[in-house]
Design a binder for these strands. Structure first.
Lengths: 220, 220
DNA sequence: CCGCATCCGTTTCGATACTG
DNA sequence: CAGTATCGAAACGGATGCGG
Protein backbone atom coordinates (compact mmCIF):
# COMPACT_ATOMS: atom_id res chain seq x y z
CA UNK A 1 0.00 0.00 0.00
CA UNK A 2 2.67 2.42 -1.02
CA UNK A 3 4.73 2.99 2.10
CA UNK A 4 6.39 6.37 1.75
CA UNK A 5 9.86 4.93 1.51
CA UNK A 6 11.66 7.87 0.03
CA UNK A 7 14.44 6.71 -2.22
CA UNK A 8 15.93 3.35 -2.92
CA UNK A 9 18.59 2.74 -0.32
CA UNK A 10 20.28 -0.27 1.22
CA UNK A 11 19.11 0.06 4.79
CA UNK A 12 22.18 -1.45 6.29
CA UNK A 13 24.68 -0.22 8.83
CA UNK A 14 27.67 -0.80 6.59
CA UNK A 15 30.34 1.48 5.22
CA UNK A 16 30.18 -0.05 1.76
CA UNK A 17 26.40 0.12 1.61
CA UNK A 18 26.54 3.79 2.65
CA UNK A 19 28.99 4.54 -0.12
CA UNK A 20 26.75 2.88 -2.63
CA UNK A 21 23.71 4.74 -1.31
CA UNK A 22 25.64 7.90 -2.06
CA UNK A 23 27.29 6.96 -5.32
CA UNK A 24 25.73 3.78 -6.60
CA UNK A 25 23.15 5.18 -8.98
CA UNK A 26 23.72 5.00 -12.66
CA UNK A 27 25.92 7.79 -14.11
CA UNK A 28 26.92 9.26 -10.77
CA UNK A 29 30.47 7.96 -10.71
CA UNK A 30 31.03 8.79 -14.36
CA UNK A 31 30.10 12.39 -13.62
CA UNK A 32 32.58 12.40 -10.76
CA UNK A 33 35.16 10.93 -13.10
CA UNK A 34 34.72 13.78 -15.57
CA UNK A 35 34.96 16.40 -12.87
CA UNK A 36 38.29 14.97 -11.72
CA UNK A 37 39.86 16.59 -14.76
CA UNK A 38 38.53 19.98 -13.71
CA UNK A 39 35.34 22.05 -13.71
CA UNK A 40 32.85 21.39 -16.50
CA UNK A 41 29.82 23.07 -17.94
CA UNK A 42 26.53 21.24 -18.16
CA UNK A 43 26.70 20.95 -21.91
CA UNK A 44 30.24 19.61 -21.90
CA UNK A 45 29.39 17.10 -19.21
CA UNK A 46 26.48 16.02 -21.34
CA UNK A 47 28.74 15.59 -24.34
CA UNK A 48 31.17 13.49 -22.30
CA UNK A 49 28.51 11.06 -21.11
CA UNK A 50 27.28 9.23 -24.19
CA UNK A 51 23.62 8.44 -23.87
CA UNK A 52 22.69 10.17 -20.63
CA UNK A 53 19.30 11.85 -20.67
CA UNK A 54 19.35 15.54 -19.89
CA UNK A 55 17.05 15.24 -16.92
CA UNK A 56 19.12 12.40 -15.54
CA UNK A 57 22.23 14.55 -15.68
CA UNK A 58 20.41 17.35 -13.93
CA UNK A 59 19.08 15.03 -11.26
CA UNK A 60 22.51 13.55 -10.57
CA UNK A 61 24.15 16.93 -10.35
CA UNK A 62 21.50 18.11 -7.89
CA UNK A 63 22.05 15.05 -5.74
CA UNK A 64 25.81 15.39 -5.79
CA UNK A 65 25.40 19.03 -4.88
CA UNK A 66 23.09 18.19 -1.98
CA UNK A 67 25.63 15.63 -0.78
CA UNK A 68 28.35 18.27 -0.79
CA UNK A 69 30.52 16.48 -3.33
CA UNK A 70 29.94 18.90 -6.19
CA UNK A 71 29.54 22.64 -6.29
CA UNK A 72 27.87 24.85 -8.88
CA UNK A 73 29.68 28.00 -9.75
CA UNK A 74 28.70 30.88 -12.01
CA UNK A 75 31.54 32.26 -14.03
CA UNK A 76 31.57 36.06 -14.18
CA UNK A 77 31.43 38.03 -17.43
CA UNK A 78 32.97 38.36 -19.96
CA UNK A 79 32.34 34.63 -20.40
CA UNK A 80 29.33 33.95 -18.21
CA UNK A 81 28.56 30.28 -17.75
CA UNK A 82 27.68 27.76 -15.08
CA UNK A 83 30.31 25.23 -14.21
CA UNK A 84 30.21 22.24 -11.92
CA UNK A 85 33.27 21.28 -9.92
CA UNK A 86 34.29 18.90 -7.17
CA UNK A 87 34.42 20.16 -3.61
CA UNK A 88 37.21 19.07 -1.30
CA UNK A 89 34.85 16.38 -0.08
CA UNK A 90 34.36 15.27 -3.64
CA UNK A 91 38.07 15.09 -4.26
CA UNK A 92 38.28 12.47 -1.53
CA UNK A 93 36.72 10.05 -4.00
CA UNK A 94 40.04 9.87 -5.81
CA UNK A 95 41.07 6.47 -4.46
CA UNK A 96 37.68 5.05 -5.34
CA UNK A 97 37.86 6.33 -8.91
CA UNK A 98 41.36 4.92 -9.16
CA UNK A 99 40.30 1.53 -7.83
CA UNK A 100 37.51 1.40 -10.39
CA UNK A 101 39.96 2.32 -13.09
CA UNK A 102 42.37 -0.38 -12.08
CA UNK A 103 39.68 -3.02 -12.25
CA UNK A 104 38.49 -1.80 -15.62
CA UNK A 105 41.87 -1.31 -17.21
CA UNK A 106 42.51 -5.03 -17.37
CA UNK A 107 39.18 -5.49 -19.14
CA UNK A 108 39.79 -3.07 -21.98
CA UNK A 109 40.71 -4.64 -25.27
CA UNK A 110 42.14 -2.82 -28.22
CA UNK A 111 39.24 -0.63 -29.33
CA UNK A 112 37.31 -1.68 -32.39
CA UNK A 113 38.19 0.50 -35.39
CA UNK A 114 34.73 2.07 -35.43
CA UNK A 115 34.37 2.44 -31.67
CA UNK A 116 34.18 6.11 -30.73
CA UNK A 117 36.73 7.14 -28.09
CA UNK A 118 36.31 10.17 -25.89
CA UNK A 119 39.35 12.15 -24.92
CA UNK A 120 38.74 12.53 -21.18
CA UNK A 121 38.85 8.86 -20.22
CA UNK A 122 42.06 8.36 -22.15
CA UNK A 123 43.71 11.26 -20.36
CA UNK A 124 42.38 9.98 -17.05
CA UNK A 125 43.85 6.55 -17.75
CA UNK A 126 47.32 8.09 -17.81
CA UNK A 127 47.11 8.15 -14.02
CA UNK A 128 46.74 4.37 -14.10
CA UNK A 129 49.35 3.42 -16.65
CA UNK A 130 52.03 5.77 -15.34
CA UNK A 131 55.10 3.77 -14.38
CA UNK A 132 56.91 5.66 -11.64
CA UNK A 133 59.71 3.11 -11.61
CA UNK A 134 60.76 4.01 -15.16
CA UNK A 135 62.34 7.46 -15.25
CA UNK A 136 61.84 8.04 -11.51
CA UNK A 137 63.40 11.48 -11.68
CA UNK A 138 61.38 12.67 -14.66
CA UNK A 139 59.81 16.07 -14.02
CA UNK A 140 58.17 17.86 -16.93
CA UNK A 141 54.82 19.00 -18.21
CA UNK A 142 53.25 17.96 -21.48
CA UNK A 143 50.45 19.56 -23.42
CA UNK A 144 48.00 17.24 -25.08
CA UNK A 145 45.59 18.32 -27.76
CA UNK A 146 43.10 15.61 -28.58
CA UNK A 147 40.71 16.41 -31.40
CA UNK A 148 41.40 20.03 -30.58
CA UNK A 149 40.67 19.79 -26.87
CA UNK A 150 43.65 20.78 -24.69
CA UNK A 151 44.85 18.87 -21.64
CA UNK A 152 47.77 19.16 -19.27
CA UNK A 153 49.82 16.21 -18.06
CA UNK A 154 52.42 16.95 -15.40
CA UNK A 155 54.99 14.47 -14.18
CA UNK A 156 56.88 15.33 -11.02
CA UNK A 157 59.29 12.75 -9.70
CA UNK A 158 56.99 9.77 -9.62
CA UNK A 159 53.61 11.47 -9.49
CA UNK A 160 51.29 12.55 -12.28
CA UNK A 161 48.48 15.02 -12.46
CA UNK A 162 46.08 15.39 -15.36
CA UNK A 163 43.80 18.34 -16.05
CA UNK A 164 41.75 19.92 -18.75
CA UNK A 165 43.21 23.00 -20.38
CA UNK A 166 46.55 23.89 -21.91
CA UNK A 167 49.66 24.11 -19.71
CA UNK A 168 51.57 27.34 -19.21
CA UNK A 169 55.05 26.05 -20.01
CA UNK A 170 55.00 22.57 -21.54
CA UNK A 171 58.20 20.90 -22.63
CA UNK A 172 56.16 19.80 -25.65
CA UNK A 173 52.60 19.63 -26.87
CA UNK A 174 51.32 16.53 -28.65
CA UNK A 175 48.52 17.01 -31.14
CA UNK A 176 46.65 13.86 -32.08
CA UNK A 177 43.35 12.03 -31.59
CA UNK A 178 42.25 9.82 -28.70
CA UNK A 179 42.55 6.61 -30.70
CA UNK A 180 46.16 7.23 -31.61
CA UNK A 181 46.98 8.05 -28.01
CA UNK A 182 45.39 4.77 -26.92
CA UNK A 183 47.58 2.98 -29.43
CA UNK A 184 50.68 4.61 -27.95
CA UNK A 185 49.75 3.79 -24.37
CA UNK A 186 48.85 0.22 -25.20
CA UNK A 187 52.07 -0.26 -27.10
CA UNK A 188 50.30 -0.99 -30.38
CA UNK A 189 52.06 2.02 -31.91
CA UNK A 190 55.62 3.16 -31.22
CA UNK A 191 56.37 6.83 -30.73
CA UNK A 192 58.71 6.62 -33.74
CA UNK A 193 56.02 5.26 -35.99
CA UNK A 194 53.57 7.86 -34.74
CA UNK A 195 55.99 10.60 -35.71
CA UNK A 196 56.90 9.29 -39.13
CA UNK A 197 53.28 8.52 -39.93
CA UNK A 198 52.44 12.04 -38.78
CA UNK A 199 49.56 10.78 -36.65
CA UNK A 200 51.05 12.76 -33.80
CA UNK A 201 52.25 16.32 -34.25
CA UNK A 202 54.75 17.62 -31.71
CA UNK A 203 55.19 21.26 -30.72
CA UNK A 204 58.47 21.67 -28.83
CA UNK A 205 60.92 18.95 -27.83
CA UNK A 206 60.30 16.06 -30.21
CA UNK A 207 62.20 13.65 -27.99
CA UNK A 208 59.66 14.33 -25.25
CA UNK A 209 57.26 11.99 -27.04
CA UNK A 210 59.65 9.10 -26.45
CA UNK A 211 59.86 9.83 -22.75
CA UNK A 212 56.10 10.22 -22.61
CA UNK A 213 55.58 6.88 -24.32
CA UNK A 214 57.97 5.13 -21.95
CA UNK A 215 56.47 6.71 -18.85
CA UNK A 216 52.87 5.89 -19.75
CA UNK A 217 53.14 2.53 -21.47
CA UNK A 218 50.56 0.15 -20.04
CA UNK A 219 52.66 -2.94 -19.36
CA UNK A 220 50.22 -5.77 -19.38
CA UNK B 1 11.64 0.70 -33.49
CA UNK B 2 13.15 -1.15 -30.57
CA UNK B 3 16.82 -1.58 -31.37
CA UNK B 4 17.82 -4.84 -29.71
CA UNK B 5 20.36 -3.25 -27.44
CA UNK B 6 20.97 -6.11 -25.08
CA UNK B 7 21.67 -4.89 -21.59
CA UNK B 8 22.16 -1.43 -20.19
CA UNK B 9 25.80 -0.55 -20.60
CA UNK B 10 27.82 2.64 -20.84
CA UNK B 11 29.12 2.35 -24.34
CA UNK B 12 32.32 4.13 -23.67
CA UNK B 13 35.95 3.13 -24.09
CA UNK B 14 36.87 3.92 -20.49
CA UNK B 15 38.29 1.81 -17.70
CA UNK B 16 35.91 3.22 -15.12
CA UNK B 17 32.87 2.75 -17.33
CA UNK B 18 33.93 -0.87 -17.96
CA UNK B 19 34.19 -1.50 -14.24
CA UNK B 20 30.75 -0.10 -13.71
CA UNK B 21 29.36 -2.16 -16.58
CA UNK B 22 30.66 -5.18 -14.71
CA UNK B 23 29.83 -4.21 -11.15
CA UNK B 24 27.58 -1.20 -11.20
CA UNK B 25 24.21 -2.86 -10.92
CA UNK B 26 22.34 -2.72 -7.68
CA UNK B 27 23.40 -5.38 -5.10
CA UNK B 28 26.37 -6.67 -7.07
CA UNK B 29 29.06 -5.07 -4.94
CA UNK B 30 27.30 -5.97 -1.72
CA UNK B 31 27.33 -9.60 -2.77
CA UNK B 32 31.04 -9.34 -3.45
CA UNK B 33 31.48 -7.72 -0.07
CA UNK B 34 29.83 -10.67 1.67
CA UNK B 35 31.92 -13.17 -0.22
CA UNK B 36 35.10 -11.46 0.91
CA UNK B 37 34.57 -13.03 4.34
CA UNK B 38 34.46 -16.48 2.79
CA UNK B 39 32.15 -18.80 0.84
CA UNK B 40 28.43 -18.42 1.45
CA UNK B 41 25.31 -20.37 0.76
CA UNK B 42 22.47 -18.81 -1.17
CA UNK B 43 20.25 -18.58 1.87
CA UNK B 44 22.91 -16.97 4.02
CA UNK B 45 23.70 -14.48 1.29
CA UNK B 46 20.02 -13.70 1.13
CA UNK B 47 19.88 -13.15 4.87
CA UNK B 48 22.86 -10.81 4.73
CA UNK B 49 21.33 -8.60 2.06
CA UNK B 50 18.29 -6.99 3.64
CA UNK B 51 15.60 -6.45 1.08
CA UNK B 52 17.02 -8.17 -1.98
CA UNK B 53 14.49 -10.08 -4.02
CA UNK B 54 15.29 -13.72 -4.45
CA UNK B 55 15.34 -13.58 -8.21
CA UNK B 56 17.59 -10.56 -8.10
CA UNK B 57 20.11 -12.45 -5.99
CA UNK B 58 19.99 -15.37 -8.38
CA UNK B 59 20.42 -13.09 -11.38
CA UNK B 60 23.40 -11.29 -9.84
CA UNK B 61 25.09 -14.53 -8.90
CA UNK B 62 24.64 -15.85 -12.43
CA UNK B 63 26.15 -12.69 -13.87
CA UNK B 64 29.09 -12.73 -11.46
CA UNK B 65 29.62 -16.37 -12.34
CA UNK B 66 29.56 -15.63 -16.06
CA UNK B 67 32.08 -12.85 -15.52
CA UNK B 68 34.39 -15.25 -13.73
CA UNK B 69 34.37 -13.37 -10.45
CA UNK B 70 32.34 -15.89 -8.50
CA UNK B 71 32.30 -19.66 -8.56
CA UNK B 72 29.62 -22.10 -7.48
CA UNK B 73 30.79 -25.09 -5.55
CA UNK B 74 28.93 -28.11 -4.26
CA UNK B 75 30.04 -29.23 -0.84
CA UNK B 76 30.39 -33.00 -0.53
CA UNK B 77 28.47 -35.04 2.03
CA UNK B 78 28.08 -35.28 4.99
CA UNK B 79 26.91 -31.64 4.79
CA UNK B 80 25.89 -31.26 1.15
CA UNK B 81 25.19 -27.69 0.15
CA UNK B 82 25.92 -25.22 -2.60
CA UNK B 83 28.22 -22.38 -1.76
CA UNK B 84 29.29 -19.36 -3.74
CA UNK B 85 32.83 -18.09 -3.43
CA UNK B 86 35.14 -15.56 -5.03
CA UNK B 87 37.53 -16.72 -7.70
CA UNK B 88 41.06 -15.35 -7.84
CA UNK B 89 39.74 -12.82 -10.32
CA UNK B 90 37.06 -11.85 -7.85
CA UNK B 91 39.57 -11.37 -5.09
CA UNK B 92 41.21 -8.67 -7.17
CA UNK B 93 38.27 -6.47 -6.27
CA UNK B 94 39.72 -6.09 -2.77
CA UNK B 95 41.09 -2.57 -3.31
CA UNK B 96 37.78 -1.46 -4.76
CA UNK B 97 35.82 -2.81 -1.81
CA UNK B 98 38.27 -1.14 0.51
CA UNK B 99 38.00 2.21 -1.28
CA UNK B 100 34.23 2.03 -1.01
CA UNK B 101 34.53 1.24 2.66
CA UNK B 102 36.83 4.14 3.29
CA UNK B 103 34.41 6.56 1.68
CA UNK B 104 31.49 5.16 3.61
CA UNK B 105 33.20 4.88 6.98
CA UNK B 106 33.31 8.64 7.40
CA UNK B 107 29.57 8.78 6.71
CA UNK B 108 28.50 6.33 9.38
CA UNK B 109 27.07 7.88 12.51
CA UNK B 110 26.52 6.07 15.76
CA UNK B 111 23.74 3.64 14.89
CA UNK B 112 20.24 4.45 16.07
CA UNK B 113 19.25 2.27 19.03
CA UNK B 114 16.66 0.42 16.99
CA UNK B 115 18.72 0.14 13.81
CA UNK B 116 19.46 -3.50 13.05
CA UNK B 117 23.13 -4.25 12.58
CA UNK B 118 24.42 -7.23 10.68
CA UNK B 119 27.55 -8.93 11.86
CA UNK B 120 29.42 -9.26 8.56
CA UNK B 121 29.80 -5.55 7.77
CA UNK B 122 31.08 -4.86 11.25
CA UNK B 123 33.70 -7.56 10.95
CA UNK B 124 34.59 -6.29 7.49
CA UNK B 125 35.05 -2.79 8.86
CA UNK B 126 37.86 -4.05 11.09
CA UNK B 127 40.03 -4.02 7.98
CA UNK B 128 39.40 -0.30 7.71
CA UNK B 129 39.79 0.79 11.30
CA UNK B 130 42.88 -1.29 12.00
CA UNK B 131 45.72 0.95 13.07
CA UNK B 132 48.97 -0.71 12.11
CA UNK B 133 51.00 2.06 13.71
CA UNK B 134 49.69 1.16 17.18
CA UNK B 135 51.12 -2.15 18.33
CA UNK B 136 53.10 -2.69 15.11
CA UNK B 137 54.49 -6.01 16.34
CA UNK B 138 51.16 -7.43 17.45
CA UNK B 139 50.62 -10.93 16.09
CA UNK B 140 47.68 -12.90 17.39
CA UNK B 141 44.35 -14.35 16.36
CA UNK B 142 41.02 -13.53 17.93
CA UNK B 143 37.75 -15.38 17.76
CA UNK B 144 34.63 -13.31 17.49
CA UNK B 145 31.18 -14.68 18.14
CA UNK B 146 28.50 -12.17 17.18
CA UNK B 147 24.96 -13.25 17.95
CA UNK B 148 26.32 -16.76 17.83
CA UNK B 149 28.01 -16.50 14.43
CA UNK B 150 31.75 -17.18 14.60
CA UNK B 151 34.43 -15.10 12.87
CA UNK B 152 38.19 -15.09 12.83
CA UNK B 153 40.30 -11.96 13.07
CA UNK B 154 44.03 -12.41 12.61
CA UNK B 155 46.60 -9.72 13.18
CA UNK B 156 50.09 -10.33 11.87
CA UNK B 157 52.61 -7.53 12.27
CA UNK B 158 50.59 -4.75 10.72
CA UNK B 159 48.19 -6.71 8.54
CA UNK B 160 44.73 -8.04 9.34
CA UNK B 161 42.62 -10.73 7.82
CA UNK B 162 38.99 -11.37 8.63
CA UNK B 163 37.02 -14.50 7.84
CA UNK B 164 33.88 -16.31 8.72
CA UNK B 165 34.23 -19.30 11.01
CA UNK B 166 35.97 -19.97 14.31
CA UNK B 167 39.78 -19.90 14.50
CA UNK B 168 41.85 -22.95 15.39
CA UNK B 169 43.97 -21.40 18.14
CA UNK B 170 42.71 -17.99 19.20
CA UNK B 171 44.40 -16.09 22.00
CA UNK B 172 40.88 -15.23 23.07
CA UNK B 173 37.32 -15.39 21.81
CA UNK B 174 34.96 -12.45 22.32
CA UNK B 175 31.27 -13.22 22.55
CA UNK B 176 28.97 -10.24 22.04
CA UNK B 177 26.54 -8.66 19.59
CA UNK B 178 27.31 -6.48 16.56
CA UNK B 179 26.04 -3.32 18.22
CA UNK B 180 28.37 -3.65 21.19
CA UNK B 181 31.29 -4.31 18.88
CA UNK B 182 30.47 -1.15 16.95
CA UNK B 183 30.48 0.76 20.23
CA UNK B 184 33.94 -0.59 21.02
CA UNK B 185 35.37 0.26 17.62
CA UNK B 186 33.87 3.72 17.61
CA UNK B 187 35.17 4.40 21.09
CA UNK B 188 31.70 4.88 22.55
CA UNK B 189 32.38 2.00 24.93
CA UNK B 190 35.67 1.15 26.62
CA UNK B 191 36.87 -2.42 26.81
CA UNK B 192 36.83 -2.12 30.60
CA UNK B 193 33.20 -1.01 30.67
CA UNK B 194 32.28 -3.76 28.25
CA UNK B 195 33.81 -6.34 30.59
CA UNK B 196 32.31 -5.04 33.82
CA UNK B 197 28.90 -4.60 32.18
CA UNK B 198 29.24 -8.13 30.86
CA UNK B 199 28.19 -7.06 27.36
CA UNK B 200 31.27 -8.84 26.08
CA UNK B 201 32.21 -12.30 27.28
CA UNK B 202 35.83 -13.34 26.90
CA UNK B 203 37.10 -16.88 26.51
CA UNK B 204 40.85 -17.01 27.08
CA UNK B 205 43.17 -14.07 27.73
CA UNK B 206 40.96 -11.30 29.11
CA UNK B 207 43.65 -8.68 28.47
CA UNK B 208 43.40 -9.48 24.75
CA UNK B 209 40.24 -7.40 24.60
CA UNK B 210 42.24 -4.30 25.53
CA UNK B 211 44.76 -4.92 22.78
CA UNK B 212 41.94 -5.61 20.34
CA UNK B 213 40.20 -2.36 21.27
CA UNK B 214 43.39 -0.36 20.84
CA UNK B 215 44.27 -1.97 17.53
CA UNK B 216 40.84 -1.47 15.99
CA UNK B 217 39.71 1.85 17.42
CA UNK B 218 38.40 4.07 14.63
CA UNK B 219 40.20 7.31 15.33
CA UNK B 220 38.05 9.96 13.78
C1' DC C 1 14.05 -25.72 4.90
C1' DC C 2 16.98 -24.74 0.74
C1' DG C 3 17.35 -22.90 -3.86
C1' DC C 4 15.36 -21.02 -6.84
C1' DA C 5 11.27 -19.37 -10.76
C1' DT C 6 7.11 -16.59 -11.71
C1' DC C 7 4.03 -12.82 -11.34
C1' DC C 8 2.87 -7.95 -10.66
C1' DG C 9 2.91 -3.12 -9.00
C1' DT C 10 6.36 0.60 -8.41
C1' DT C 11 10.51 3.13 -9.50
C1' DT C 12 14.04 4.34 -12.42
C1' DC C 13 15.93 5.08 -16.84
C1' DG C 14 16.29 6.43 -21.99
C1' DA C 15 14.91 9.05 -25.83
C1' DT C 16 13.23 12.93 -27.67
C1' DA C 17 10.60 17.25 -27.91
C1' DC C 18 10.40 21.64 -26.21
C1' DT C 19 11.37 26.23 -23.49
C1' DG C 20 13.49 30.56 -21.01
C1' DC D 1 23.26 27.07 -23.00
C1' DA D 2 20.87 24.83 -19.46
C1' DG D 3 17.77 22.70 -18.49
C1' DT D 4 11.78 20.81 -18.21
C1' DA D 5 8.11 17.92 -19.83
C1' DT D 6 6.50 13.71 -21.50
C1' DC D 7 6.12 8.90 -22.30
C1' DG D 8 7.38 4.09 -23.14
C1' DA D 9 10.82 0.54 -21.68
C1' DA D 10 13.49 -1.73 -18.41
C1' DA D 11 14.85 -2.70 -13.71
C1' DC D 12 13.61 -3.48 -9.16
C1' DG D 13 10.89 -5.01 -4.66
C1' DG D 14 7.82 -8.06 -2.58
C1' DA D 15 4.90 -11.88 -2.45
C1' DT D 16 4.06 -16.38 -3.67
C1' DG D 17 4.67 -21.04 -5.56
C1' DC D 18 7.24 -25.25 -6.03
C1' DG D 19 10.34 -29.27 -6.51
C1' DG D 20 14.06 -31.66 -3.85
Amino acid sequence: MAAVEGKRTYREYCAIARSLDLLGQRWTLLIVRDLFLGPQRYTDLHAGLPGIATDMLTARLRTLEAEGLVRRRELPPPAPATVYELTNEGRRLGPLIRALGEVGLTLLDTPAPDEPINASPVVMSLNLTFRAEELPELTETYGLELDGTPFTVSVDRGTVTTERGAPAAPVATFRTDPRTLVGLIRGDTSSQAALTDRVVEVDGDRAALDRFAVAFLADR
